[in-house]
């Protein structure tokens, strides 16, 4: 997992979903949904951030918990997308 990607994702979560409360930062594999950190609008905010910040194009079919529901899965998804932008990784 790229440390830079992870840091950026953590910063985004801290600012947008935790409103600065670092004590609630989830473990890397913890479900953001289960931790009550994200809702349907939050998913769209996350997708918009990933597209803008990492220059990705994320297809509807990729907006699934398998790709976006933990820090680890987000980082893996971003890494894979960055390496193979032409081949979308659908869950």
């Amino acid at each position: 997992m790229s440390q830079s990607i992870e840091k950026d994702v953590r910063d985004f979560i801290l600012e947008n979903f935790l409103f600065g409360d670092e004590s609630r930062m989830p473990d890397v594999t913890e479900s953001l949904l289960e931790a009550d950190l994200i809702d349907s609008t939050g998913i769209l905010e996350l997708v918009a951030y990933l597209e803008q910040h990492f220059g990705l194009a994320i297809a509807d079919a990729e907006i699934v918990p398998a790709n976006l529901d933990s820090i680890a899965s987000i980082c893996a998804f971003v890494t894979a997308k960055s390496k193979a932008p032409a081949k979308l990784v659908a869950a």
């Binding site: 349907s40 998913i43 699934v64 398998a66 529901d69």
Partner: peptide, 16 residues
């Protein structure tokens, strides 16, 4: 009438 839900996959709808 909730735009946030329209764009969600069945997996996310099931999760929410």
């Amino acid at each position: 009438y909730l735009p946030g839900l329209k764009q969600q996959s069945p997996d996310y709808l099931a999760a929410f």
